[in-house]
Computed example of a mutant assay.
Amino acid sequence: MLEEKSVDTSQLKGRDFLTLLDYSSDEILYLLDSAMKLKQAQQQGECPKVLAGKSLGMLFENASTRTRVSFEVGMTQLGGHALFLSPRDLQIGRGEPISDTAKVLSRYLDGIMIRTNSDEKVAELARHADIPVINALTDNYHPCQALADLLTIYEQKGDYTKLKTAYVGDGNNVAHSLLIGAAKVGMDITIATPKGYEANPEFVNKAIEIGKETGALVKVTNDPVEAVKGADAIYTDVWASMGFEEEQKKREQAFSGFQVNQQLTAHAKDDYIFLHCLPAHRDEEVTAEVIDGKHSCIIDEAENRLHVQKAVMIALMA
């Protein structure tokens, strides 16, 4: 188990979960420990029905396999109910102010999960809602994914403070949240991106500052070999994320030297693990040999979305 952290759980109830920047290192470790215990309980055929009678509204402006299924199943396992709400089910797209939607949903629901592009939209929803709002993905953040990543790394390695994770690819929302999450738990991280596709300097600088307090070494580079050298975990994502599909050909050229393959992974530790948030494009950002090989933990990582999200929902809504 993770080291027990003294966290006042009453300070978590009713809060929003928009970015890991809003949570202390101890709070993040508490959520990860809670997720691990929930996973073990489920494996033993047990699951606390602590959200019985509670309802979660799931607002989707972007399609997703893992996000919808994991949140919906998670609510069911905890005794609650989840409502899938697409743009066709909401009046926001027809001009209703987000503030009105937030206030009305607050009278019906106990929590809102939203997956959209706009960070501003999520922030406005949270400002006007009287119930917790969970960010399931925006242009700049993917905090639930980062928690699943951190849980997977701990399961495989049993530590954070002596590890190095290398992220190779686009400096996108996944990279941002992984940067912040790694820094919060004291894990070294290096982000390698092609020139012009770097992570947002604002988040890099915040992660560096956090790392000074936790002991995490945060680096950015344009050299994937430098990033992977001595790494305990290697992470990548698609080169053209949702919304950038029209840049596919351009990005294939820019990222040509950033494929995670056996030549690149040879620079990592012999027992490195491979991570990917999925969906993946085999033989593009990663070879089939790596993603389907003995080092890959992508299915464990995907499963862990379920458990970390249950931990978040319990902390905020129970």
Rank of each mutant, 00 (worst) to 15 (best):
residue 246 E to A: 14
residue 64 S to G: 07
residue 77 Q to F: 07
residue 313 M to G: 01
residue 64 S to F: 05
residue 123 A to Y: 08
residue 290 V to E: 10
residue 25 S to I: 09
residue 60 F to M: 03
residue 9 T to V: 15
residue 190 T to W: 04
residue 316 L to W: 01
residue 196 G to Q: 10
residue 139 D to E: 15
residue 153 I to H: 00
residue 122 V to R: 04
residue 230 G to F: 13
residue 10 S to H: 12
residue 134 I to D: 03
residue 289 E to S: 07
residue 109 L to R: 03
residue 184 K to V: 12
residue 105 L to I: 09
residue 73 V to H: 05
residue 309 Q to N: 08
residue 297 C to T: 10
residue 128 H to G: 11
residue 42 Q to T: 14
residue 238 V to K: 07
residue 18 L to T: 06
residue 248 Q to F: 15
residue 305 R to L: 03
residue 9 T to A: 10
residue 230 G to L: 09
residue 74 G to C: 09
residue 270 D to H: 11
residue 186 G to W: 04
residue 133 V to P: 08
residue 73 V to K: 14
residue 308 V to D: 00
residue 147 L to I: 06
residue 64 S to K: 06
residue 4 E to S: 14
residue 4 E to H: 14
residue 28 I to P: 01
residue 144 C to F: 01
residue 142 H to P: 09
residue 18 L to N: 00
residue 189 I to M: 09
residue 106 S to V: 07
residue 241 S to M: 11
residue 64 S to H: 00
residue 132 P to K: 08
residue 238 V to W: 11
residue 92 I to D: 04
residue 76 T to A: 15
residue 83 L to N: 08
residue 87 P to H: 10
residue 147 L to F: 04
residue 79 G to P: 06
residue 65 T to H: 11
residue 178 L to H: 08
residue 298 I to F: 15
residue 258 F to L: 09
residue 152 T to I: 09
residue 308 V to P: 01
residue 63 A to P: 05
residue 301 E to A: 06
residue 172 N to G: 02
residue 276 H to T: 06
